[in-house]
């Protein structure tokens, strides 16, 4: 039983990084595909399209920060349950934000291609989603202080 709890603890420890990486990959791939398409149809603004498409990469960075804050040496059965809960839920939040950010960024890139003056404001929804990921990061850090070990 203790072994299973420890396994779950390690699972929760790496979940923010793994799920954050998956979210970032899907988000960047979606937004990047839109950026590549937009570049076929425009003569300028390549840099900002690609720049915007990289925004979801922050999810994996947040995941790494959460992982370090949850790390316990050694991992104990007392800490494992808390690490599992906080890590998995934070990871799911990062995964979801990454995917959705990719979608809104793809839309923003297409819209800004037709109307370049709205490029800045079209990134606002993605920035709001980023804010939600930051909430998940900050409160995961706060709660990690309450986990024994």
């Amino acid at each position: 039983m203790t072994d299973l709890v420890l396994v779950l603890g390690w699972f929760g420890l790496f979940a923010p990084v793994a799920l954050g990486a998956i979210g970032s990959s899907i988000g960047c791939a979606r937004a990047g595909s839109a950026a590549i398409g937009a570049m076929l149809d425009t003569e300028t603004g390549y840099g900002r399209f690609i720049g915007a498409s990289l925004m979801p990469s922050s999810q994996v960075i947040y995941g790494i920060v959460i992982m370090f804050s949850l790390q316990r040496d050694p991992m104990t059965a007392e800490a494992a349950a808390g690490v599992f809960g906080v890590g998995v839920l934070a990871g799911v939040a990062l995964l979801y934000v990454g995917i959705r950010q990719g979608e809104v960024l793809a839309s923003a890139i297409v819209a800004a291609k037709a109307k370049p003056e709205i490029f800045g404001i079209s990134l606002a929804p993605a920035a709001v989603l980023e804010g939600f990921a930051v909430f998940a990061l900050v409160f995961a850090l706060v709660l990690s202080g309450s986990i024994p070990g």
């Binding site: 791939a29 937009a38 291609k113």
Partner: peptide, 12 residues
């Protein structure tokens, strides 16, 4: 993703 690239490459 190819649909995303194709749709994004079509003008308004």
């Amino acid at each position: 993703f190819q649909y995303i690239t194709l749709a994004a490459s079509l003008p308004h």
